[in-house]
Design a protein around this nucleic acid. Sequence first.
DNA 1: GCATGTTGTCATACT
DNA 2: CCAGTATGACAACAT
Length: 715
Amino acid sequence: MKDLKKYLTEGLLQFTILLSLVGVRVDFDFYLPPIREIIQGTSSAYSQIPFHSLRDTWEGSSLHPKSPDLDSFFTAKRLLEQVRALGGTLVPRTEVSAWLVHADSGDAEEGTFSTDQTLLTSASNEESSSTTDSPANNQEGPSQQSSRSTLPQCHASPPQQQHIGPGASQTSSDFTKEKQEEKLGCCPSTYDYNYVHSESGKTELDEDVAQDNIEEHTSVRDSSDIELSDNNNQRIEIDRSTTEPSLFFEEFIQLLAQTENTLEGTNENEPNATQPAYRIPQGNSVGELWQDFFSLPDLNSTLEDIQPVSNVSSPRNSSTQNADDFGEMLSRDVSLQEVMFPSNLSSRRDENLAQRSEPFSQSDSSTSSEGSLNPANLAQFIQSTDNSTRNLTTHDLLSGIDDNVFDEINLMSLALEEGFDPLEVSQLFEEPDSDSGLSLNSSHSPTSASISDSSSVSFGEDEGAAGYSSDSESVLYGGLEGAVGSSWPEVNKFCRLDYEQNSDYCDNVTMHNVHHNHTYNQLSSQLEAVDDYHYSLSAKQGKLSSQCVSGMDKNLSRDERRAKSLRIPFSVDEIVSMPVEMFNNMLSKHCLTESQVTVIRDIRRRGKNKVAAQNCRKRKLDVILNLDDDVCQLKARKEKLLKERAQCSKSTSHMKQKLNDLYRDVFSKLRDEQGRPVNPSLYALHCNSDGSIMVVPRRLFKSEQKQDMQKEKKK
DNA sequence: GCATGTTGTCATACT
DNA sequence: CCAGTATGACAACAT
């Protein structure tokens, strides 16, 4: 009885298999797995997998349809597919980038396609070799695409297959598709078959996206194209709704919305879209296909959900759409061209097909794309993308102006109107990086350039404007005493006495900042004397003065504050840097108080000491570094010597060993007068000076050695 | 708040 | 003797 039942069961199973082979749908309720499997996922039986196809594979070849291990095989396979599907939920960046690149190149190069077979094949080719082929492949003519389509495509899609896993050849959705095609009597071509069976749902999405983009860029399309695209989209929807997680749903909705727009634009022009030129068998009308597709409840619900999305997405205004496009492109690692010309993207979606077909070659070529650009959109796009940055930059710029220029202007006004301490203002204006000393407002105001230029140019001129200076510090020190500042300290020093009575100083130290010193001619000899010093000093000042830039009192050093408080008409740098002779000369020529002289000397001393301390520390660091180098070198040398010593000891021991061996060998062959062997402990070999070797008793040999030692000691 | 580095200053010896 | 230099020590400040 048990055997009979088993026989009947197996016979029933075989019958169902036969029915499935002829395309009749069979309900496998009897063989349904436990409800747990149905809930958790598609089981092998529920998927109605045609195991004849599996048997053709290496995995299923070992299983007989009646084998009791079949269900466990499918269960394991399903679990394996689920595990691989987990990995498949992530979008490989390479694939996404690939279809974007294809979209660019395809629209530019492939204006027309002879058939949808070519279209789909090109998309699949590109998709299957997206990780290796360059976009130039897409620039092949349609003829080449056609030739490529004749190749066995099952070999052309290994990258994605490997990515998915060679064992995961069929997902449930793929089997569903295949079942549908079989049901329709579709005998898919080798390409289609492998395409359907080799690609995961996610890969199909990418391929269809690529095709969708290509379709958008195709200028002339017949009804079959549209039918195909729609067909593919339906297939996509089936795959997505059944296999893909919700992670891609929004993305796919957008993609489908684009296709919906395309279809809306093309169906009007080509209402008779019922002749698929693509490999759909002639025996099955497209209407049947549509009926079959729409018979799926998931598909209907999805299309109902999709339609509002496309309607909603289309009327977006340009700015928001551009922003969304930009974010979308960023999220998809979009190509640069699409980022640069987002208006193309929006236009592609909104314009109808006839309008879109023409400018693509232009809009996608970077050189001639200006015509297709909408300046307003571009401006909005740029504004939307750069708005924050621009605001930040503007803010920074204004803050910089506030901090520098405006404060300088205000302080200058204070200095001129309220008797503000000129030193403070002068140090505010001190240019940190200026080596020339012509630093007054050189970069803080728009007029600074002309001012500096005029100053520098007029220095040698005989225009004779009093108070020449670009060094505002010197100017204002001079202004304190009624003297006129000089661009260079020595000029300032030697001209100051002559300018102390110059009432024009205050007029010269004005907002115009044009200070021309005509009196240096009177001191030409002195200027010549200090000319060399000036240039060395200028370089030093450029470095040293950088620490008191744009300063209020808090930025001034102690000496500077002291000098300012005592109204010392020299800058600290001047005091410190000038030679002793000039320093003494300066002190003697100026009528300075005792406290001023003391402070000046202290400033000079501290300044010198400061520089000395810096040099000292620098030297100390250099010494430390040199010592470190020496330590490293000595360590290396030590290591080398240790190695040499080890080598020498090794060779010495080796030679000793050889010598002992030789000794033993010699003594083993030595015989005395009676023919007895010689005892090496009693005798020793002695090498004479003439090279002869004698056998000497050890006691004699030791006594000779002692005598030799004594002789050497006596010496 | 503490550790560490930097810098300025002072005292002192030296040149 | 003076000016300058070198250097250790200390303090203030920054990191």
